[in-house]
């Protein structure tokens, strides 16, 4: 649910009392027309608040916490679980880790060490995160709490999208740190969500070879399935072009 324009104006006034809409737009990288449109419609996107917060050196999570629907984001953060941290490591990074564990000298050549983990989100961040915190009933609880139909929720997960409101609702329903979902959805960075620096790398290092390999295998299997489905759909579409185009 986007934020009401009135509350946004009040917040903006507190953050940058003298700035015009154009100034704010320039500083935050939000397009001026986009911002103006959101103000006219009375609904301001969470991403706008995040962009402006960054421009004025405010923590975006705390900024969102000053709006009613996200009130509890303002509370001291719960640290992410191990599963959450690992879920936000890209599949390619997991594979890198496997390779560097089995052949420490391979790949990069002259001992530059394994490359650092790429920042979240990755291509299947959202789904991996929800899977990491799901106790089997999570999707059901989120759907009851938010009134979003389960199939729409699933569609978002598959598309690697998650509306901020749903991300926070998911965290709430799972009892994990409230900002984690925003990290997985790519709205805020792990540092902004209060994840300790190097936490993902530490989580990765704490996994045994077996755990790591099984996890990477699951990721690859899911990726393979998705790719096969996409290829199938692509072929189907091409048949249509060929015959009817």
């Amino acid at each position: 649910m986007p934020l009401p324009a009135k509350a946004f104006q009040r917040w903006l006034h507190g953050v940058a009392p003298d700035a015009s809409v154009a100034d704010v737009a320039r500083a935050s990288g939000v397009k001026r027309t986009t911002l103006a449109q959101q103000l006219v419609r009375g609904k301001v996107a969470e991403a706008t608040v995040v962009g402006i917060s960054r421009a004025f050196n405010i923590n975006p999570v705390a900024a969102l916490g000053s709006f009613e629907p996200y009130r509890d984001l303002g509370k001291p953060p719960i640290p992410p679980t191990l599963q959450e941290l690992v879920s936000q490591i890209a599949t390619a990074d997991l594979l890198h880790a496997i390779i560097s564990r089995t052949e420490p000298d391979a790949g990069t050549g002259k001992g530059t060490g394994p490359p650092g983990l790429s920042a979240p989100p990755h291509a299947t961040s959202v789904k991996n995160w929800v899977d990491a915190i799901d106790d089997g009933e999570l999707r059901h609880r989120v759907s009851t709490a938010t009134g979003v139909a389960p199939q729409n929720y699933s569609a978002q997960l598959t598309a690697n999208r998650l509306a901020p409101e749903l991300a926070v609702a998911t965290s709430r329903a799972a009892g994990v740190g409230l900002a984690s979902g925003l990290v997985a959805a790519g709205l805020v960075t792990e540092a902004e969500a209060g994840w300790p620096p190097g936490a993902r790398q530490a989580a990765l290092d704490s996994m045994t070879d077996g755990e790591l390999t099984v996890l990477a295998g699951e990721r690859l299997q899911a990726l393979g399935k998705t790719l096969r489905r996409q290829e199938h759909d692509q072929r189907q579409t091409e048949t249509i072009w060929e015959n009817l185009g």
Binding site: Q236, T239, I240, E242, N243, L244
Partner: peptide, 8 residues
């Protein structure tokens, strides 16, 4: 025929 072929 074209339509059926297109939609496989």
């Amino acid at each position: 025929l074209r339509i059926a072929a297109g939609f496989g």
